[in-house]
Design a protein around this nucleic acid. Structure first.
Lengths: 248, 248
DNA sequence: CCGTTCCAATGTGTCGACAGATAAGCACGA
DNA sequence: TCGTGCTTATCTGTCGACACATTGGAACGG
């Protein structure tokens, strides 16, 4: 595939982003598919910040870059629009979506509501094997925290949540949550970069695991809600600070 | 009489279905758009049961019918797939989606969780003018109930819920709920056709309005949840009965 | 009669081309 | 300097065509 100019400095994180987009956006295209390949590459670039919100994504340029016609490009962009990463206005050029603060608040609230459902179900019905997988993901989060590696923490966190949605065995909700996750993936490391956030998040998740082990669905749901509220608050703090001093 | 064929003969219901699909699937295509027109027509046909789950939707046939090339057809089908009405496997022919019982349960649970959010927000912050609009929609539901017109009741109910999501001023959640609504639109008639369901639903909605007027967010959320649980139960009862005696 | 193997018919994914819409550049006037 | 209107360049939506995958069905053998 076409070499990409100013790629994010962390190639491993980019690879993870690409895999995430593939899992969510192209889960059905198991065989190598042109559209899936394009969608994953462009989607990962958006998540990793290689392409900033508002950047132009016109199909002519992309078709040159990927050496294809515009048809598969258009289809890939529509897939990304479905996940909220791209904005494709009729008769105008597609752009990287520009989520405003209200969007972000709405996404976090929706995520919280649906994840409460998931967490309650996990608490009620997860197998010991499933809980073990959750513990393993949590251990990765802790390791990343100790290492002070925000990127690794973010991806371990993504894995942790993914495991949750898998255990709840609810495809519909999982699909929605995955889509909401993609929209905020770019922002997650900002939120978790806030001082003390990683430690707090580790605490929250430890308690969540405990609630799961105790089969306490109510507590698990409440913890999930609390975690989302905290994450949003940290994000709002960060966004307010960069809004005040853009060159901070 | 399963009602599928019968519903197709109600042109007003079909018109409403088309408008619903347009609002949800093609909200951005304000100007007459080829793709939007196709998507609305086919989407309405699916909702109204003209096309049964599993029916073939190959792009060649559709392109003949709409006198276009296959490109806009494919795009329209992708729009409908986004809303869960159509299934487009790679390299295979698109089909009308076939939701199984688990899908339906998941959808109702997800809807309930998100609508609790909406209802709580409406209870907290709806204007008197907004509440008045809700009352007006509710009056239509009551009128349809008195007239014993299930079709009219269903559409008034759709309007009522739409007004709720508007009042909560949460585009993200509204989008998700609209999509989930489309998936089950075809089933709503069945659920509300169950004996006593319309009366029960009227009761529930009267109490919901009361909770709104009292600004009781907790009660509003609980009522919404209860209403969804009841609707799902009615639907399951119906589905179980047709499963036992398919030719009943 | 049923299950396989193979072939023809049909449909999908992709392509390059075109008309018309949008955006970028430029000249002009305040 | 900036805004305004025109011109040109570029992009989008749609089209018909092609190679290849899938599907339906016939011929064959058990």
């Amino acid at each position: 595939m076409a070499g990409n100019a100013a790629r994010a400095s962390d190639p491993d994180s980019f690879r993870r982003a690409k895999a995430l987009v593939h899992r969510i956006v192209a889960e059905r295209h198991d065989r190598p598919s042109l559209v899936a390949e394009i969608a994953c590459e462009v989607g990962a670039e958006i998540i990793e910040g290689v392409r900033a919100p508002g950047d132009d994504l016109n199909s002519v340029e992309l078709s040159k870059r990927f050496s294809t016609s515009r048809t598969p490009i258009r289809e890939a962009l529509m897939l990304l629009e479905k996940e909220g990463l791209v904005d494709v206005p009729p008769r105008k050029r597609p752009r990287v979506a520009v989520p405003d603060l209200q969007d972000i608040r709405e996404i976090y609230r929706a995520r919280a509501a649906l994840f409460e459902l998931i967490a309650a179900d996990v608490a009620r019905s997860a197998s010991e094997e499933g809980l073990e997988r959750l513990r393993s993901r949590f251990a990765e989060m802790q390791a990343a925290h100790r290492a002070g590696d925000v990127n690794a923490f973010v991806w371990a966190n993504v894995d942790f949540y993914d495991q949750n949605t898998l255990l709840a065995n609810n495809r519909t909700v999982k699909r929605i949550l995955d889509s909401l996750l993609l929209r905020t993936a770019r922002l997650r490391h900002l939120s978790l970069s806030q001082p003390g956030r990683m430690a707090r998040s580790c605490d929250d998740h430890a308690r969540l695991l405990k609630a799961y082990e105790d089969r306490d669905a109510t507590l698990a749901a409440a913890l999930i809600r609390s975690n989302h509220i905290n994450a949003l608050a940290a994000l709002e703090t960060y966004l307010a600070s960069v809004a005040e001093q853009p060159r901070g």
